[in-house]
Computed example of a mutant assay.
Amino acid sequence: MSFSELYESELSNGRWENSPKPAQHQEGEPDTSVACSPSSVFSWEASHPHLLPLSSQNFLTLDLHGDPRESYPHTPMVIDGVVLPKTPEELQAERRLHTVPYMVGFKKKEFGCFLPTLMGYPLSEGKLNQKTAMSLLWKSYPFVHIPKELIPEAIEKYLGGTDDPVKKKDLFLDLMGDVLFGVPSVIVAGTTKEHASTGPEKGLCRTFLH
């Protein structure tokens, strides 16, 4: 059963009776109404104890204890056949996306600001050793999807050039930034450039990497 079907079922059974009615608004003004109230969310959770409670999900939080392959710190993409008939990668490869101007890129220290703290990375001491770096990268699997057997090689490639634990910490953050932001940006930019050089949008794409 899809979420929309489940929602309609719950609505017909009166489980969402606390949901406020959509507010009336004048044409041309933004609609500020909400879909449900907090009380209705908790009511829905109470009636579905077999599902993960919406209020207790630790979004974007690193799990340092469990198996990272079984951790889901963010909402997964849903290929519903309507909004997303296929994955974005497949749609882009088939050129089934609207042509719109956009900018894609990343900065030098993409993972070096508030993200490590927000996501619970234990880096408050400002230093890191090789063994801990490998453990943290493996625990980051839900975000980076690097297989366990490739962890040592990746860590050696980025951190192997220094024995300074402070520099190792900075290099680990560089690794995370590259995997989470740099590589996806380059892939999207490269695919878009390739399509624009051969398709009807030929000459309209400008790709800059700095």
Rank of each mutant, 00 (worst) to 15 (best):
M1H: 05
S2I: 04
F3D: 11
L6K: 08
E8V: 11
E8M: 13
S12M: 14
N13C: 13
R15P: 03
E17M: 08
P20L: 15
K21Y: 13
Q24T: 10
D31L: 15
D31T: 10
S37Y: 07
P38W: 09
S40T: 15
S43Q: 10
S43P: 01
E45D: 11
E45F: 02
S47T: 05
L52M: 09
P53L: 01
L54T: 10
N58Y: 03
F59N: 06
L60F: 14
L60G: 01
L62V: 11
G66F: 02
P68H: 01
P68N: 04
P68I: 00
R69N: 01
E70G: 10
E70Q: 09
Y72M: 05
P73Y: 02
T75N: 05
M77G: 08
I79W: 06
G81M: 12
L84K: 08
L84F: 14
K86I: 04
T87V: 05
T87E: 05
P88R: 06
H98F: 15
V100A: 14
Y102R: 12
V104K: 09
F106P: 00
F106L: 01
K107H: 10
E110V: 01
E110Y: 01
P116Q: 00
L118W: 02
M119Y: 00
G120T: 01
Y121P: 05
P122E: 05
E125P: 03
G126T: 03
L128H: 03
N129Y: 07
A133M: 02
M134L: 03
S135H: 13
S135P: 00
L136I: 02
L137C: 05
K139P: 00
F143M: 06
V144P: 02
H145M: 11
K148L: 09
L150Y: 13
L150K: 13
I151D: 10
E153V: 07
L159R: 05
T162S: 15
T162E: 04
D164Q: 07
K169D: 02
K169G: 04
L175I: 01
M176S: 00
D178Y: 03
V179Q: 08
V179N: 03
L180P: 00
V186N: 06
T191Y: 08
T192E: 11
E194R: 11
A196G: 15
S197C: 10
S197A: 15
R206I: 13
T207A: 12
F208T: 14
